[in-house]
Amino acid sequence: MAIRWSWASPRLALVPAVSVTLVAFFGAILWTIWVSFTRSRRFPEYAIDFEDLTRQYDRLFGDNAWATSLENVVILALGSGLAIVFGFILAAMIEREKRGEGFFRTLFLYPLAVSFIVTGLVWRWLFNPDLGIENFLHQLGWESADFNWLGDRRTAMYGVILASIWHGLGFYMALMLAGLKSINTEIWSAARLDGVSFWRLYAEIIIPMLKFTFLTCAILLSLGVVKTYDIVLAMTGGGPGTSTWTPAYFVVNSFQSRGNIGFASAAAVMMLVMTLVIFLPLVLITAWQARRREARVQ
């Protein structure tokens, strides 16, 4: 009996957590998918209109604001990807120069202690032409300086990207630094003895050995980009116009401003599809590479 109880007790302890996950996570997903096929507006309706089943999705893909949000999420993904590149460069510099490693690691990790809302407000102030960088440059005598990126539809999204890079740079640097420290020191020593150049060492040896770290960073970045909302809200409020809307901002706006929960649910379902399209291939690639590495070791 004692053996049976020792087998069952941990599984019983997991029942509440599993139940909450099934109801709150998978239940919410199924509810959202169901509502997206109804005519729900301010309040949910559960009668599916089979004669016009894709009504909400047809409206969604005909909405210019949704098209803008999809373009912006691609731009944001490409721009925010620079955080991984710069994070690797910083990690490589810190790894090579041991002095002050703790100080620089703390300095670059500091933005993680700040929420996206606070980050957005700070960068909104920096882009303010009357108070921020532009005003500072004018005081230095550079009267032609124009740094009001958030006031221009063509540059507002780049301002959001710059703030996102600043916020996530330290996180990706820490991941890359951990990956660099996991590399056997004998590899570095052998490369120096063989006279391998600095650029060739990183391009042909170090970076290929960090492919799992890069994949992990790509997965985390893709998940963060798809759900980007709070930093856009704090910096631009989606403006000018709809120039900085993202899918997450579109979903919230569709419910709060338009009062259409069915339309917002359809957009949320498409966000889930985008996440799966981006996330699953990266996870499968990572698992495949892990199996290959295990096979080589055996």
Rank of each mutant, 00 (worst) to 15 (best):
A2S: 12
A8D: 07
P10T: 14
L12R: 12
V15T: 14
V15F: 11
V15H: 08
S19D: 07
L22D: 05
V23Q: 09
F26W: 12
G27R: 01
A28V: 04
A28W: 00
I29F: 01
L30D: 07
S36I: 00
R39G: 08
S40K: 08
F43W: 00
P44W: 01
E45S: 15
E45H: 13
A47G: 14
D49I: 01
F50Y: 15
E51Y: 10
D52E: 13
D52G: 07
D52P: 02
R55A: 11
Q56A: 10
Q56R: 13
Y57F: 15
D58L: 13
D58K: 12
R59M: 10
L60N: 07
L60Y: 06
L60K: 04
N64C: 05
A65H: 12
W66P: 00
S69L: 04
S69Q: 03
L70Y: 12
L76A: 02
S80G: 14
A83I: 01
V85Y: 11
I89C: 04
E97T: 12
G100V: 14
E101V: 07
G102C: 02
F103H: 03
F108I: 06
S115L: 06
T119Y: 06
V122C: 10
W123Q: 02
R124G: 15
W125N: 11
N128R: 05
L131Y: 13
I133T: 03
E134V: 04
L140M: 15
G141L: 06
W142R: 10
E143L: 12
S144F: 06
D146L: 08
D146T: 07
D146E: 14
F147G: 02
N148I: 01
W149V: 01
R154Q: 03
Y158W: 02
G159Y: 06
G159W: 04
G159L: 04
G159C: 10
V160R: 01
I161N: 00
G168Q: 11
G168V: 04
G170N: 05
F171P: 01
F171Q: 00
K181R: 13
S182C: 11
N184H: 05
T185V: 06
I187N: 14
S189W: 05
S189Q: 10
A190M: 07
R192A: 03
D194N: 13
F198M: 11
W199M: 10
R200W: 08
I206T: 15
K211A: 13
F212H: 02
F214M: 09
S222Q: 12
I231L: 15
M235L: 08
G237A: 07
G237W: 02
G238K: 01
T242P: 04
S243Y: 06
T246I: 00
A248N: 04
Y249R: 03
V251P: 01
F255T: 08
G259A: 08
I261A: 01
A264P: 01
A267H: 05
A268L: 09
V269L: 02
V269K: 00
M270R: 02
V273T: 11
M274Q: 13
L276D: 03
P281D: 14
A290P: 03
E294C: 05
A295W: 03
R296H: 02
R296Y: 01
Q298W: 12
